[in-house]
Design a binder for these strands. Structure first.
Lengths: 234, 234
DNA sequence: CGGTACGTTGAGTCATATCAACCATAGTGG
DNA sequence: CCACTATGGTTGATATGACTCAACGTACCG
């Protein structure tokens, strides 16, 4: 339950790393944002915003990895997605004007830039290309959510785990030794797949025995991508 | 596999019944739309657009009920949501510029108005209030999808069925005799809950025996709303 | 009158959750 | 420096929710 305090950082070069969306902005708009935004670093375990919070703005991720999850009625976490450098988080609740429907918690040391809500609305209204771009972003996320619903409802736990591993590979890639760059606990994996931790452990070692993956603690190496995809029924 | 042809209808008064979103439009914008849109009626079983289709525009529902579903890798349908009078369908794929990720099929005789994609983009760029309103719509849908993911991943089939019944009540209401206005086959219910048809049948009669609901073929009457909510773990 | 779609019930099986015990590791405070 | 505690990982045994398969009933429709 530790929740380390964030700390201010210097972020002159914010927009360099930011979402391609910001390319649509005029110099003037960019200036307004950099005058009104506020960058902070958060350590692993920090919560950037919590389910139920009223959102006064949204965030742009400069570095690190963040998990976005919902808490079910029995307290179990369900990871909805991850945010990486360039991603925006929290904008959904800002726009829909609802309390945050998810919690976002840092997995790897992250630098995050806060941008107040009013600026977001101004940009949407002033800059049509930005509006279309942002809307495209939400629509893609919605499409992914729809697929996720179908998968969870219809696939077996093993199929889902295989699919999750493939997705993590596509999203985060692997290092020189072929190890998945994102490192998750078994529990976090179970919170993505939507199952018990023990099931994840058993199925991971099944996949290992089938030669699909190699395991070394939290380090996961995918050995047989086509095999895994097949196992995921993709 | 029948797919009755749609037929043209007169739709002078389209915008009267349309989504509140359209209130943001100027008279001029409204005129442009009514000159370029095209209303048709579709019978039960008709498919308005099919998963994988390239979308040349989106639709505004004037009357009727439409189910929006995805087909899983084994061919099983997963109903994502329903569309009612005033709802927009198909806009997600238009904006994200992807092929349709769902199929929309008519459940009850529907009048539907087609609006070409270019007009949508023009409106977003020209009319800031419209842009914000539409974005709000997508964001709310995304929030609902996130809840759905969590529910399907964590709740039992019976909890989900109870919740679906409550949701159908809120969305469609009941007639004078207290019977849910939307009438679904057991299979359609199973395609919402994400389970086997037989399970739905058994659980419906369990809920009946517990005094939660009354059954008469497809007619479902909710007797004990608080009880159902409790059974849904809401 | 036969066909087709829908609904129901029973029996058997299997995937997955749950419960419990145990080990490894690392951080903490006295 | 050591005992203590928390966290994460693993394994086995057991229970059960939910699916599958199969048979049959029912109703409507051309």
């Amino acid at each position: 339950m530790t929740n380390p305090d964030p700390f201010d950082i210097n972020c002159n070069s914010c927009f360099g790393q930011c979402h391609p969306l910001f390319r649509y902005l005029t110099d003037n708009e960019r200036l307004t944002i950099s005058l009104n935004s506020n960058c902070q670093a958060y350590k692993r375990g920090s919560v950037i915003y919590r389910e139920g919070n009223k959102m006064r703005g949204f965030y742009c991720v400069q570095s690190g990895i963040i998990k976005i999850y919902k808490t079910g009625s029995d307290g179990k976490k369900q990871i909805i997605r991850f945010a990486e450098p360039g991603d925006l988080i929290g904008y959904r609740s800002v726009i829909s004007n609802e309390p945050a429907c998810t919690t976002s918690e840092v997995i790897e040391l992250s630098e995050v830039c806060f941008i107040p809500a009013e600026l977001l609305f101004d940009l949407i209204k002033q800059n049509g290309d930005f509006a279309v771009g942002l809307m495209k972003l939400v629509c893609i996320e919605l499409g992914e959510a729809n697929s996720y619903i179908t998968d969870i409802a219809q696939k077996s736990v093993k199929e889902r785990l295989s699919e999750v591993l493939i997705n993590l590979y596509h999203e985060f890639g692997e290092d020189k030794q072929g190890i998945l760059k994102i490192s998750l606990t078994r529990e976090e994996l179970s919170n993505i797949v939507g199952t018990a931790t023990e099931s994840i452990i058993r199925l991971l070692s099944e996949l290992k025995n089938e030669g699909m993956i190699e395991l070394n603690g939290r380090k996961i190496k995918i050995l047989d991508k086509p095999g895994l995809k097949h196992s995921a029924n993709m």
